[in-house]
Amino acid sequence: MDNNYADMMLEQLFCEHPHAREFFGAIGLSALPEGQTLGNTVAALDEELLLDVGIERHDLLRQFRDYMAGMEQLRNQQQAMVASVTVLGGHDKSGNLENFKLELRPGEVTCIVGPTGSGKSRFLADIEWLAQGDSPTGRSVLINGTVPDLARRYAVEQKLVAQLSQNMNFVMDLSAEEFIRLHAESRMVTDPSAITATILDLANSLAGEQFIPTTPVTALSGGQSRALMIADVACLSSSPIVLIDEIENAGIDRKRALELLADQDKIVLMATHDPILALMGQRRLIFKNGGVASIRSTSPAERANLALFEQMDARLTMVRNALRNGEEIAGNW
């Protein structure tokens, strides 16, 4: 790989590496004159201008090289494969040993249940931190069965856990299409247009009501926002684990949403006390007093009940729709 950017003509550099132009724009040097090599262009930059934007000349090229190397790395490790995440038990708040070994694999949905303050967040933090017996719970985390490279702890671009929660909102002033495209470009995917179209389609298939690509993300309904977030995390986030904090009932096909994440080989961890969601998982971790008190696999009997709960849910949905349409809720439902 030729990294001698300083000797490249500026226009050639920007043509071959569109994100290079973005770098200079971000630094505050968007109007660089073309027709010179990068090295000469930087050497000729006005001292006053450098003072204004707040960067030193010698540091500019170094920062640029680091940035380009980082982006190159991002492009090459599009799918750093995580085949399994293993959590080895530590202890609860009172020091009682947890005594478990839990292996999480792509495509699996694991639910997390327990009262507030029972240690659910700390469990997820242990995974994110790649705890090696050095967190308050004493748990250890293995990736693909081995102790991971701990440099990864502070490598934000390789974050293990992506999050979806009810408290999250879109705050960016962009249309749905522009927004996803921006995310795709920052992830260095090869075909941002194609992935953007895929994500918008998926989101629309999850949301009850359709939205168009030009709808501003801040104008999406609660269900549409959640659908777009889920489709985006499934297809674009680099993190192999997705943490979901409850999926509300508001106009979204929750079953399909989970299937989508599982199909994209995500390891799904979901904090929920919704009976249908909880039973959709392969297993549940039951938290008490800061520790995992027990692990329960979803049994065939529970699965049978799931079918029953889904029927109940469908009936309630019918009532809800009837209410929405202004009907009288009388008679035999």
């Binding site: 630094i27 920062q63 680091d66 671009e157 999250m168 705050v171 995310h183």
Partner: peptide, 19 residues
């Protein structure tokens, strides 16, 4: 309180000015 996508884009934008 913001979406995962916005968090990732935000990190990217920081990376652009501090590699």
């Amino acid at each position: 309180i913001v979406s995962q996508a916005e968090r990732e884009v935000f990190v990217h934008r920081i990376r652009q000015v501090n590699s």
